[in-house]
Design a protein around this nucleic acid. Structure first.
Length: 246
DNA sequence: AGCACA
């Protein structure tokens, strides 16, 4: 057999070496920097410890960000799994960063202040003709990037010895959030959920700590937010998000 | 499109 593994989009296909830092572009430029960085954190922290997220608003750097992981394995996983992931309605394009992040160089002892930094003598290898393979979708874009994202929520077991009819939860504009810290407030949750388009409100129930309902304008918006925040840790454990029952 | 370190 041909031993060629499909060298997926980004990374080595572009002649860029694996790096603890990933470079992301095609980001939605309308999103405020702070929200953008927070969302990137939310979405990428599942792959490992994040040291830093950088993004800038200058013309030259709009729509781009760098996420610095603690190790290359996390970066690689993130690159592969989140390639083309619809983030604020645009598929993220992810590559390894071309150079070492300052925060890493500083830890390394190899940091050289910017103006004194001299270019590497090693000229990069001549660029190979780039063939455009289109094998995206290692993770199934926007669909099942998160295992369990669409998992059935626990059944309400008040139901007696009836026939076991698994509740079918139909996608809709209201999310059901579970496993929140018991002292989480609606305001706190709002900080996360309001970052995504179509956000309307967070509702919590006094008598039932640890859960919340979050409403969006439509199902697509709710789905986007769910995918982006699925498993995000507000304090300790990852929250679980499903659609609310109608 | 665009690889920086405010």
């Amino acid at each position: 057999m041909s031993g060629e593994a499909a060298a997926g989009g980004g990374g080595e296909a572009n002649g860029v070496q694996p790096n603890v830092t990933i470079y992301i572009n095609n980001l939605n430029e309308k999103i405020k920097l702070e929200a953008l960085k927070k969302s990137l954190n939310a979405v990428f922290s599942q792959f490992g410890k994040i040291i830093e997220v950088l993004a800038f608003k200058t013309l030259k750097h709009k729509g781009q960000a760098w996420v610095v992981f603690e190790d290359v394995a996390s970066a690689t996983e993130a690159l592969k799994r989140m390639q083309d992931f619809p983030f604020y309605d645009k598929p993220m394009k992810i590559q390894y960063a071309k150079t070492k992040s300052d925060v890493i160089a500083k830890a390394d002892g190899t940091f050289v202040p910017r103006e004194k930094r001299k270019r590497n003598d090693e000229k990069p290898e001549k660029k190979q003709k780039r063939e455009q393979h289109h094998d995206v979708n290692q993770a199934g874009v926007g669909m099942h990037a998160y295992p369990g994202a669409y998992g059935a929520p626990p059944l309400p077991f008040g139901a007696g010895p009836k026939v076991m009819m698994p509740e079918i939860i139909v996608p809709n504009n209201i999310l059901f959030v579970q496993e929140l810290p018991h002292d989480a407030t609606a305001l706190m949750l709002q900080m996360f959920f309001c970052q995504y388009p179509g956000f309307k409100e967070v509702r919590m129930i006094e008598a039932k700590p640890g859960i919340a309902f979050v409403e969006y304008g439509d199902e697509g918006q709710a789905t986007a937010a769910m995918n982006l925040l699925q498993g995000f840790k507000i304090k300790e454990n990852p929250m679980r998000i499903t659609y609310a029952k109608k």
